[in-house]
Write a protein that binds this DNA or RNA. Structure first.
Lengths: 347, 347
DNA sequence: CTGAAAGCGCTTACAG
DNA sequence: CTGAAAGCGCTTACAG
């Protein structure tokens, strides 16, 4: 009688070996898809493992071998939705490959970031780390990871992009195209709210806006540009500055949705009708974008796909290409035109 | 010279033992806060461990002992923000106690939920599981966990509450008080949008609404009650039903924020001024609640605190009280009156 | 109050 | 193509 798994007692590699009539080393070979196993033997082992519902013990594997089957996701991002999407993408890939995902919240403003990440790595042996903005741009953390040769992939890094493996979308191009959309609607006086300077994407989006204006011969007016911080509050404050008096832009492009919603709130309070009197565009396609009225025109980021790609790179140990250069993947965005933008009405 | 940690080579319990001049067993005792260690010895070991920056290896501990220092969070919730908050709370507690958090996305409608959770537990040895709605109400999963004696804590379970450890807030009372808030503003004709019937909280919130109306002698009118599913879309549909013609309620209480935002969207389209012509209340205090205009009156759930409490129960192995009953914690909510509700205007 | 021995369940490096 | 031995870094159960 084969031993069936019961609570408490678990099936080990020895049970499988005994059931298949081979040594544990051979079972190990089959499970790890190593070469040099006779097809017949492989079959027997697979059958025994399936019958016994054998699950390799991750701790034992991790302790004995070079893989832990654990990936870590480091985040410190005010946008809960963004982080959730990332996790979802990473989890999808992990599950498929028998990996598990460990999450770790980082306070990137704290002085002991490096130490706490290092402590985690020393205690846990992780096969790879996914770094999300703004953690992916903390030089001290990157340096420590390089020093300890921990594989990692950066999601949408700003600085020093070629330094290590990364997954990106073209923030500059997306902002460029969104600005073109507004220009195409007849707007020439387009305000802009910049994002948090610590986030790399903020600068790229601003560049895209500037480039599009210049390429289309539209004026760049400093008084139409406001510094925001990716928060709703900073959107409100920027909107109050930009919509201060009668001299206001006909459209505003905020470099994320939160801030765009801040503009919307201010505009509503002041009785400005959107989009007839003011077009508003955001960036992110956050859940809120569909929830407000009018629904927000924005850019969909391939967040889930980016995280999945990052997890894949780590699991398949493909963070470097053959010539030693850091691997990178560029994923597609999508411009989503909804109701908050409209053709310029001739006054 | 003490051996300092370098990349690749890691400090083990043997290094600490050697540095402190004791056996590894004594180091183990100190690290695990076991009794029967001479204070002086304890000091020496602590000093050696600190100097060497020793970090116990989780895999080794897990393999040899009864603790894995790993907690799991199972979720399958459409609300990304809710899940993120939960994680945040759990992470906070984990970090403090030297634990780590593993997340696992569940598809609770799939047929193999039990198998996939079981597989995870067999491969990973986890000290405890946090189950979030609606995973916490899947009977098959609970049964499997009981069978394998896996400790777990349910967050806001609906069914069979006393079955296992849980963390709750009083959804019924919160809905009761929110309804009272509307009644206190002079509203007598208050609509209600029910939540997804699979979520326990949905029923409790509905009860609270009914009880408050009855206790205050306000009429309960079936045509003012609509079945929603916690989604924005279902809020829109319910609003369209409730605001169908001139005979409409003066206030609507939606059992979550998403649906309340759906009402708001419909009302705006129809030119109904909020809150002057229609008061709207939600439930959750989701990020969107502050982002819309007017800002939403809602109930703040202690989500972060609930997850933290759940993690604590698991880490301190306090899922059962001394008499064997399942432990439970009830946390406080908060009614947050914002701008979407106002006193009834006499027509 | 302290330690020597065994063992958790695997993989590695080696031998054949 | 297959296996016996050693060892990963700890905790457990036992002895003193």
């Amino acid at each position: 009688m084969p031993k069936l798994p019961t609570a408490g007692s678990s099936v080990t590699i020895y049970d499988v070996a005994a059931a298949a009539g081979v040594s544990i080393k051979t079972v190990s070979r089959v499970l790890n898809r190593e070469p040099n196993v006779k097809p017949g033997t492989r079959q027997m082992v697979m059958a025994a493992a399936a019958k016994l519902q054998y699950r390799p013990n991750v701790s034992a594997r991790s302790l004995a071998g070079s893989r832990s089957y654990l990936l870590g996701l480091l985040f410190d991002n005010p946008s809960r939705a963004y982080v959730s999407e990332l996790q979802f993408g990473a989890l999808h890939c992990c599950r498929q490959e028998g990996y598990h995902l460990l999450v770790e919240a980082i306070d990137s403003t704290a002085g002991d970031v490096v130490q706490s990440v290092e402590a985690m790595l020393q205690t846990l042996k992780i096969d790879g780390l996914i770094l999300t903005p703004p953690v992916c741009d903390l030089p001290d953390v990157l340096e420590m990871l390089d020093r300890s040769s921990t594989p990692y992939v950066r999601i949408a890094p700003e600085h020093d992009a070629a330094r290590a493996a990364r997954v990106n979308m073209d923030d500059r191009l997306a902002a460029y195209q969104m600005t073109e959309l507004l220009l195409g609607l007849g707007h020439r006086d387009i305000g802009f709210i910049k994002g948090h300077p610590d986030h790399g994407a903020a600068h790229l989006r601003f560049e895209g806006y500037l480039d599009a204006l210049r390429d289309h011969g539209a004026p760049v007016r400093p008084e139409r540009i406001s510094q925001g911080y990716f928060s709703f509050k900073s959107g409100v404050e920027s909107a109050e500055a930009l919509l201060g008096d009668d001299d206001r832009p006909t459209a505003i492009f905020a470099s994320n949705d939160e801030m765009a919603l801040g503009i919307m709130s201010v505009a509503s309070r002041r009785g400005l009708v959107i989009p007839q009197q003011l077009s508003i565009a955001g960036f992110d396609d956050s859940p809120s974008a569909k929830v407000v009225w009018p629904q927000l025109t924005t850019v969909r980021q391939p967040v889930v796909e980016m995280a999945r790609a990052a997890a894949e790179m780590l699991i398949f140990r493909a963070t470097r290409s053959e010539d030693g250069a850091a691997a990178s993947r560029l994923l597609d965005f999508e411009i989503i035109a909804r109701e908050s933008t409209a053709a310029l009405t001739v006054v």
